[in-house]
Design a protein around this nucleic acid. Structure first.
Length: 485
RNA sequence: CGGGACGUGGCGCAGUCCGGUAGCGCGCCUGAAUGGGGUUCAGGAGGUCGCGGGUUCGAAUCCCGCCGUCCCGACCA
């Protein structure tokens, strides 16, 4: 009976496990529209916590939120040659409105550069208007062939930053600032430590001069591109005629950037921390950080236990997002499974025994060692020590994720046979020298499905890298390979 | 768009070969007992079997057409 309710093990079928966790944790559901998902309250609550944290970081660095239209005149998208080439194949097009055919079809935004720049062009007159630092929270649509909840859906939620600067250096600094914010957010909030670096030229955002990315390693040792920050140079400024007047009275094109993270991060969260019982949430992103499960038999015990539970709840409120599960239609075991599946970091059990002894039973959602999972503490110290425990657990998740990433990182690989063996067996991030040729990557991809994820930046680059590419030619740079979502 | 499979209560499936008007598990509702790891018993609600046409006395089942979904590729935050 219990077996029927268990999730598919990660080791058995990671994809099946992922889909089941998304359902079990009530993060998202399927919809009548192919490839579109419904984000359920628990999933959306996590997204709101992510938004709040990121939004604060953006504002602390001088960015402002605005909102631009969902629809883009088709001709606008076509103004930047590479941009249209990159996005046109995957756009949805509105051809009719109000029962009539439109004079010009409207593209449902796949990203907003093509509608934002014509508008921002009017906002920018002088060097005094720069930098212009704008962010929007929005939905976008990309007509993907194969979809998976959170990881790839036709419609998804994201934030997209769009900034304009007076100089190339300022734009580059902005691009890197945001890359740093993304990394910090992923580490400190998601406990999902990414590699950061630069994309190869053919893997850049359509229309960008340079694309920086965060790549995180999932538990199946596939990489997930979790955030990108693009230096657009003057490409979009030229395409949309975005000029400003300099101090000297000259007219110059602005230098711009764009950057985004999406609800894909939720998929990353699942695949970074989840286990065979379900979702595991880092405390800082847990909508419910602590659930109190009261246990009783007689009516008198019920009263006592609920009293003690309510007391603890009120002591924690304000510091901890706490929920008292006093439903009397489920027995305690059923509640344990439900909250574990949803990833709640701490469960506190309060039963007649605990009340009598002035204690509570604390059960962690995860622990390095099984014996640490469950323990008893005095009720009087619970408010302080439980808040502290949440912080410790946040740190433990990050430490474990970094350890896992490093255990599955292979540096200085030169032999292609060895490369293939790593990919075919465990997989992970493989650091090699690289000749820089696209054909080289194509061959590796055909052989192994692995691709160049990025050229690591200084925080991740090896002290030195091999002289030879895995294809045997002279290496001109170090790159990191992995199979990717 | 190429290769494979599948559409039957909310979810997962059986029944289809060999036509006779639908069944199981989970979930849901009611009641009682139970309650420290998915509790049990009793009662109950819920399906024009993806859509359209055909064969037949009779179609979930056979035939034709269409639509949709999922998996493997190509594409991708």
């Amino acid at each position: 009976m219990a077996e029927d309710k268990a999730l598919t093990a990660r080791s058995e079928d990671f994809s099946a496990w992922y889909n089941e966790v998304v359902q079990r944790a009530e993060l998202a559901g399927y919809s009548p529209v192919r490839g579109c998902m419904v984000i359920r309250p628990h999933g959306y609550a996590i997204w709101e916590l992510m938004q709040a944290a990121l939004d604060r970081m953006f504002k602390e660095t001088g960015h402002q939120n605005a909102y631009f239209p969902l629809f883009i005149p088709q001709s606008f998208l076509q103004r930047e040659a590479e941009h249209v080439e990159g996005f046109a194949p995957e756009t949805a097009l509105v051809t009719h409105g109000g029962g009539k055919q439109l004079e010009e079809p409207l593209v449902v935004r796949p990203t907003s550069e093509a509608i934002i720049w014509p508008i921002m062009a009017d906002w920018i007159q002088s060097y005094r208007d720069l930098p212009m630092l704008i962010n929007q929270w929005a939905n976008v649509v990309r007509w993907e062939m194969r979809t998976r909840p959170f990881l790839r859906t036709l419609e998804f939620l994201w934030q997209e930053g769009h900034t304009a600067h007076a100089t190339e250096e300022d734009a580059e600094a902005e691009t890197l600032l945001i890359l740093g914010i993304y990394r910090k957010f992923m580490e400190e909030w998601m406990a999902m430590p990414p590699l950061t670096g630069v994309k190869t030229e053919w893997d850049r955002f359509a229309g960008a001069v340079r694309t920086y990315a965060c790549e995180a390693l999932m538990q199946d040792n596939w990489a997930l591109q979790a955030g990108t920050s693009h230096n657009l140079g003057q490409n979009f400024a030229r395409a949309f005629d975005v000029k400003y007047q300099t101090e000297e009275g000259e007219h110059e094109y602005v230098w711009s950037t764009s950057w985004g993270v999406s609800t894909r991060l939720l998929g990353g969260l699942v695949m970074t921390h989840g286990d065979d019982l379900g979702l595991v949430l880092p405390p800082r992103l847990a909508p419910i950080q602590l659930v109190i499960v009261p246990i009783w038999k007689s009516d008198r015990q019920r009263t006592e236990v609920l009293e003690a539970s309510a007391r603890l709840k009120s002591q924690l409120e304000g510091n901890v997002r706490v929920r008292l599960d006093d439903r009397d239609t489920l027995n305690p075991g059923a509640k344990y499974y439900e909250w574990e599946g949803k990833g709640v970091p701490i469960r506190v059990e309060i039963g007649p025994n605990d009340v009598e002894k002035g204690q509570v039973t604390v059960v962690r959602r995860f622990a390095g060692e099984a014996k640490l999972r469950k323990r008893v503490i005095a009720a009087s110290e619970a408010p302080v020590s439980l808040a502290k425990l949440l912080e410790e657990m946040q740190q433990e998740l990050l430490d474990a994720a970094i350890r896992r990433r490093e255990e599955h990182s292979y540096r200085g690989v030169t032999d292609y046979e060895e490369f293939k063996k790593i990919i075919a067996s465990v997989g992970g991030f493989i650091y090699t020298g690289y000749c820089g040729a696209k054909e080289c990557e194509t061959r590796v991809k055909d052989d192994t499905k692995a691709t160049v994820r990025l050229i690591p930046n200084e925080d991740f680059a090896s002290e030195s890298y091999p002289e030879r590419c895995i294809c045997g030619r002279k290496a001109v740079q170090e790159v990191v390979w992995a199979r990717a979502y």
